[in-house]
C-alpha cells in the first residue's frame, strides 16, 4: 500500500513521543507521504518500522531540549504550604516537623527510603489523611494521584473522564475532549473503550495521571505516577510535568527514581536521619524546603 494511514499514524505518534514539535511532525508526515506517493512504495519497505524511522528522523533533527523553566513569581503566595507536618502510627513517629512550600510554576520532588512516609506526606497534603501536627494551606484546587487504586475496574477511560470531569464542573464532551488530549500528551493516542481492569499496568497508570490533571487543578499531587510506564512514556511524563508547571501549576511528585531530579525546583528527602534519638526513626533532613 502506498499511503498506509495506520503506518503514518503510528509514525506521527512515535515522532510526538520523541518530543518533536507539532509543526515538525506535520512537516515530516507531509514529506513522507509525498515520497511514498512519488515512489509508489510500501512504507514498511521504504522506511522500515515507524519506530525505527521516527528514531532516525529524531536523530537527524537533534534531541529537543527539556522544556525551559519559566521564572517563578515568588511575590505571590505559595500554592501549597505545609508547615511542621507530623504523623505518628501508634508510638512510631513517621513524619516529624516536615515543611514544604511550592509556588505556582514550581515542581517539588519528595524522595526518601521505602517506608519513610512519602505517600503519607502526600496524602496529608491532599487532606485525605490526618496529620498529628502541622497544617497545610492550599491556594486553589487539588488534583491527587494516589499510588494505584484511584480508578474503577469496570469503567472505560472515557467514562472515567466524564466522571471526574463532572466533579470539576465540565460537561461530557469537554471532559472526554480534555481527557483524550491529555492521553495523547502521554503517548496514549486512542484510549480504547475497554474497562480499566483490562488495561495494562502502565496504561492504567496513565489514566491515573490524566484524571489527576483533568480540569486543570492548581496543585497536582502525584504519588509515584510513572509506575509501569515504558522508558519513552516515562521521559514524556517528566516533560509534561515541566509543561504543567510552566502553565502555572504547583506540582509535588513523590519519587524514588533520582534520575530526573534536575527537573525539580525543590527536593525534600524524607529519609530518617542516622542521628535520630533512640526509639525515634528520625528527624527529617529538611526544616524548610531546599531551593535549588
Amino acid at each position: 500500500m502506498i499511503d498506509d494511514p495506520d503506518w503514518l499514524d503510528v509514525l506521527a505518534g512515535e515522532l510526538r513521543l520523541r518530543g518533536l514539535p507539532e509543526d515538525q511532525v506535520t512537516r515530516v508526515l507531509g514529506e513522507t507521504r509525498a515520497h511514498l506517493w512519488d515512489a509508489g512504495e510500501d512504507p514498511a519497505r521504504a522506511f522500515g518500522t515507524p519506530s525505527a524511522y521516527a528514531a532516525a528522523v529524531h536523530e537527524s533533527l537533534g534531541t529537543p531540549p527539556i522544556p525551559a523553566r519559566r521564572k517563578v513569581v515568588r511575590a505571590e503566595a505559595p500554592r501549597l504550604q505545609a508547615t511542621g507536618i507530623g504523623k505518628r502510627h501508634g508510638r512510631h513517629r513517621l513524619l516529624h516537623d516536615v515543611d514544604l512550600t511550592v509556588h505556582a510554576g514550581e515542581v517539588a520532588a519528595i524522595v526518601g527510603a521505602n517506608g519513610c512516609g512519602k505517600s503519607t506526606f502526600l496524602r496529608i497534603c491532599a487532606g485525605v489523611e490526618r496529620a498529628h501536627a502541622g497544617r497545610v494551606v492550599v491556594r486553589g484546587s487539588i488534583g491527587y494521584c494516589p499510588q494505584g487504586g484511584g480508578t474503577s475496574d469496570f469503567l472505560t477511560p472515557d467514562e472515567h473522564f466524564v466522571l471526574v470531569g463532572a466533579g470539576r464542573g465540565l460537561g461530557r464532551d469537554r471532559s472526554r475532549g480534555a481527557g483524550r488530549a491529555l492521553a495523547e500528551h502521554l503517548w496514549w493516542p486512542r484510549p480504547a473503550p475497554i474497562a480499566a481492569a483490562r488495561l495494562s499496568g502502565g496504561t492504567r497508570q496513565k489514566l491515573e495521571v490524566i484524571l489527576t490533571a483533568l480540569g486543570d487543578p492548581d496543585v497536582l499531587l502525584l504519588d509515584e505516577p510513572y509506575q509501569g510506564f515504558d522508558r519513552d512514556s516515562y521521559m514524556y511524563f517528566w516533560d509534561r510535568v515541566r509543561e504543567w508547571a510552566n502553565e502555572g501549576r504547583a506540582i509535588v511528585v513523590v519519587t524514588h527514581l533520582l534520575d530526573r531530579l534536575e527537573r525539580a525546583d525543590t527536593v525534600v528527602d524524607l529519609t530518617p536521619s542516622p542521628h535520630a534519638a533512640p526509639g525515634v526513626r528520625g528527624r527529617h533532613h529538611p526544616k524548610g524546603t531546599q531551593p535549588r
Binding site: 505571590e76 496529608i124 487532606g127 496529620a131 497544617r135 492550599v138 491556594r139 486553589g140 484546587s141 492548581d218
Partner: peptide
Amino acid sequence: RRRRHLRTLPAN
C-alpha cells in the same frame, strides 16, 4: 471529610 489541618483558599 476534609481533615482539619488542611485549609483551602481561592487561587491567587
